[in-house]
């Protein structure tokens, strides 16, 4: 259970997040937590709730709001993912997502830099964080590293070869991630096309998706991308994900048809999901996610 000082720190972070987005003209939204059809994603297992599911992310509903004319929206909400429990994972966690019409993933990066700086100043009073790997300066610009460069630098196989050998995630976790975000945060970007089910491919290089992740001190904090707005392509991507779910021995849920129908009206946009508990781990210097949430599942 979180101590009173831990509770205050958590509240300050959430309030600072709200303030940051409100000041930038973002509208706070609260979409339903219980949904009939989450996005089919190979390795994200939704928690059933009656005949429906608890959201794994508010992404689909928020994109429908963009399609309906909203331009800048953010949401802080609970998300649920089955079988995720570790020092950096909880099966129920707090997510911040924000979406902005009219920009791509590159324009989203400076906003992330500004957000982290604002939060660090608010919660720790400075631009530097003390982490397990030493001090990290949040001053812009952060390191921008493509997935191909990161694998070439830190892994025994290229990203392409690792993907072909079915070892991409293993090498990412064991070899690459621990070396990212040391000294300053890293934007790891341009993922292999197959690893961005909801992201747009780069027009000049369709082998990669316009997707990035933020790492600080080896900790994965946020996943952003230029949103895919082509309904036909999105349907093909979902079909591929459903095949991977079946290959993994699970039964895919229903297709999110209303989301697919709305996608045709969605403007070009970029969006990002940030793990609020992990962000608090980083700002509070906590080694484990258990140290920053009110209760862990085991404590309930």
């Amino acid at each position: 259970m979180l101590s009173p000082s831990g509770l205050r720190q958590r509240a300050r972070l959430i309030q600072a997040l709200r303030r940051f987005f409100i000041e930038r003209g973002y509208l706070e939204v609260d979409t339903p937590v219980r949904v009939p059809a989450p996005a089919p994603e190979a390795y994200i297992i939704p928690e059933p709730s009656g005949d429906w599911f608890l959201q794994t992310s508010p992404e689909l509903c928020m994109k429908r709001l963009l399609a309906g004319g909203a331009e800048r929206i953010f949401q802080i909400c609970k998300c649920f993912r089955q079988a995720e429990r570790g020092s950096r994972h909880l099966p129920e966690f707090t997510m911040l997502e924000w979406y902005r019409a009219g920009i791509g993933y590159r324009e989203l990066m400076p906003e992330c830099e500004e957000l982290f700086l604002a939060l660090a100043r608010e919660l720790t009073g400075g631009d530097r964080l003390e982490t397990s790997s030493g001090p990290v300066s949040l001053a812009a610009p952060w390191e921008r590293l493509t997935v191909a460069e990161a694998f070439a630098r830190h892994a025994p196989l290229s990203a392409e070869a690792a993907l072909a050998a079915g070892r991409f995630d293993e090498l990412l976790v064991t070899q690459v991630e621990p070396r990212l975000g040391l000294g300053r945060p890293t934007f790891l970007h341009d993922y292999p096309a197959a690893l961005g089910a909801l992201a747009r491919l780069r027009p000049d290089d369709p082998a990669v998706a316009e997707r990035f992740e933020i790492y600080v001190d080896g900790l994965e904090l946020a996943n952003g991308f230029s949103e895919l707005t082509d309904p036909a392509e999105q349907r093909r991507r979902f079909a591929a994900e459903r095949q991977r779910i079946e290959a993994d021995g699970r039964r895919p849920g229903p297709l999110p048809d209303k989301f697919l129908a709305a996608l045709a009206a969605m403007p070009e946009a970029a969006g990002i999901a940030l793990g609020v508990d992990r962000l608090l781990m980083l700002l509070a210097g906590a080694e484990s996610i258990e140290r920053v949430v009110t209760f862990t599942p085991e404590e309930l």
Partner: peptide, 14 residues
């Protein structure tokens, strides 16, 4: 024992 999982990737149980 360590549970690891990239956000969109496969879970690893080390």
């Amino acid at each position: 024992f360590q549970f690891s999982k990239p956000g969109k990737g496969q879970a690893l149980y080390r």
